[in-house]
């Protein structure tokens, strides 16, 4: 893992916002096994921040510390400037935590469940009525409000859990594997709700294994492995390949067997790496000698059917595999 990646600056709009969660040098062990080893990262306001790592990497432990359920053995965690150990109540007022398992009262109706939690957060009867109607509309559960929770599908139950998290209108949502066990439709619908919430100005810190959806949704990501932070920063910085020279991905409409030789003959082009099916090439050039426009102009002159020529971005899966260690040490 490169140090440059680990300290990359956020480049998304959310980067400009100040951090709402600051995790600083946190250490936590369970029965002698270190779950978090000097963990530090920040979550910016109004961002959708992914939290990724293999099983047992320390994601749930980190989330439980942030949501005040667990006290860190060393280091500090602040949410909106409030310490999670000393200002527990202030932190809890500002967060909504959704654990990685269904934690609902199955014998309650959806409305009773939301009403219970709204009252537990101190909302008046009038406020509760309005808030519950709003969260039911947001999660599209209005038509099922008198149904028993135990009789709902997993996707519906997960929506009820999300609605519960929203009843106190928290500024920060901490979601631990919210899409786990859901079918594709329920997962897509959940992600749509998360997009809406981000548009409403919520900060969302989401732990998930579904990397494709995180890559599409998140402004920033933190990758943790074996209790250590491997990367924390903007999603863009993680996915764009960084190196001494710019790398571009060239996509063709049809194969051109002579293209690699022609490109390698251009001044300033350092490497041309053919990719899948002969329709894609990864081209690296020395930007002190040539430019993107020059390379592109040559391609057009050679009447190459270009479909795309863009900065090479790797997939989050690739980044994840590069940054995390395989197997068990």
């Amino acid at each position: 893992m490169s140090e440059t990646l680990a300290t990359a600056a956020l480049t998304s709009p959310a980067a400009a916002a100040k951090p709402v969660i600051v995790v600083n040098d946190v250490v936590h062990s369970f029965k002698g096994r270190r779950a978090l080893d000097h963990v530090s990262f920040e979550v910016r306001a109004k961002s959708l921040h992914g939290f990724v790592g293999p099983n047992g990497a320390g994601k749930t432990t980190s989330l439980r510390i942030i949501c005040t359920l667990l006290r860190p053995q060393a280091g500090s965690v602040r949410v909106f400037g409030h310490d999670v150990v000393y200002d527990t109540r202030e932190v809890r007022k500002r967060i909504g935590f959704m654990p990685d398992h269904f934690s609902t009262y199955r014998q309650m109706t959806v409305y009773e469940y939301l009403d219970f939690f709204a009252a537990a957060y101190g909302l008046s009867l009038k406020q509760r009525t309005q808030t519950i109607d709003d969260v039911l509309a947001l999660t599209d559960m209005g038509g099922r409000k008198d149904d028993l929770i135990g009789g709902l599908s997993r996707g519906m139950q997960q929506r009820v859990s999300l609605a519960r998290v929203l009843v106190n209108d928290p500024a920060v949502l901490l979601l631990d594997e919210p899409a786990s066990g859901l079918d594709p439709r329920a997962r897509i619908e959940l992600m749509e709700i998360l997009k809406e919430l981000r548009a409403m100005g919520k900060t969302i810190f989401i732990s998930s294994h579904i990397l494709s959806e995180l890559a599409e949704l998140c402004d920033a990501v933190t990758i943790i492995d074996r209790g250590k932070i491997k990367y924390s920063g903007g999603m863009h910085d993680l996915l764009v390949r960084t190196g001494a020279h710019p790398t571009y991905r060239l996509t063709l409409d049809q194969e051109r067997p002579d293209l690699q030789q022609k490109l390698e003959g251009l001044t300033g082009v350092l490497t041309v790496e053919p990719m899948t099916g002969g329709l894609e090439y990864r081209v690296t050039f020395d930007d002190a000698v040539t430019t993107t426009n020059t390379v592109l102009r040559h391609l057009l002159d050679w009447e190459v059917p270009v479909l795309g020529f863009a900065g090479d971005r790797r997939h989050l899966n690739e980044a994840f595999m590069d940054l995390t260690e395989r197997g068990v040490k």
């Binding site: 005040t68 609902t104 199955r106 957060y121």
Partner: peptide
């Protein structure tokens, strides 16, 4: 049993 303790313990109480 219903794994709801975590929700109660994250209330501001």
């Amino acid at each position: 049993r219903m794994q709801t303790m975590v929700n109660l313990l994250t209330l501001p109480r």
